[in-house]
Nucleic acid binder design. Sequence first.
DNA 1: TATTGTTATACTCTATAACTATA
DNA 2: TATAGTTATAGAGTATAACAATA
Lengths: 149, 149
Amino acid sequence: MPDSLLLDRLLKVTDQLTRDMARAFADTELTPARMGVMWVVHHDGPSTQKAIARHLDVSARNVTGLVDALERSGYLVRTAHPADRRAHLVTLTPIGTELMTTAAHEHAALSASLRAAVAPADRAPLERGLDAVTTRLAELIALEAKGAS
Amino acid sequence: MPDSLLLDRLLKVTDQLTRDMARAFADTELTPARMGVMWVVHHDGPSTQKAIARHLDVSARNVTGLVDALERSGYLVRTAHPADRRAHLVTLTPIGTELMTTAAHEHAALSASLRAAVAPADRAPLERGLDAVTTRLAELIALEAKGAS
DNA sequence: TATTGTTATACTCTATAACTATA
DNA sequence: TATAGTTATAGAGTATAACAATA
């Protein structure tokens, strides 16, 4: 597709990554949304559900359901918050920690594989270009949010 | 984020595009999945639901629901297939055609805006890099599909 | 009063399976 | 027999609103 628009290329990658992630979790009790919760807790350590909701920019109700499923599957547990009896601290179980260790390795390996597929001279410009696109997209999204107030 | 992995950059753009599209359709009866149907019919002309399902790689049942919603909203209609009485030909209404004309312009404008945000010397390498990533991702997805048979 | 999390409710996207009408 | 589409059913993600317990 030599004449494609930049946006079409970005949407193509978006579609591939979305589908590939969903496929990777088929036949497990994990899903992309549940893994989102796992990444937050993996990176930030034990977190309240409110903090997770803010981090993912989803509703508190949504987090309740995702944590329910992950707790059922044994990847995390709700524990008492030491200072606030309203809140739960969501904490990874040993199995959850093991899952995320593996996931982090696979994530890095996939990133390296994709980078290796790019011509060496194009790698730095690709990364700079993606950063520029991200910055512009963030500006456009902020503008829309403002206008839609 | 100067030290981010390539994959993290790609996922960031994926997240931004996904959210931005969903936001763009808030307060309308359109959604990203419904617009997917609209794009197929816009590009391919009157299409059977089966053809749409193949194009989008979703189930026939799914297309039934999406076409139901778009027909209710007045963007397309089911018409009789001239040669196969089992099939429906999904056809854009004048309003649907108008919608897609506008959408195509906005799509091109967004693409140009994103491209303009990238340093001129980085634009060609960015596009080449994205094509390389897409090709590699397609290979990896094909490998997984084969292994999971 | 404000906040955390849950229950209640609803909509969308998605899938498989069974069924109808046609090929 | 095979195919196009629908109905039936189900699970997942998401949201708002009302409510309980606690701050």
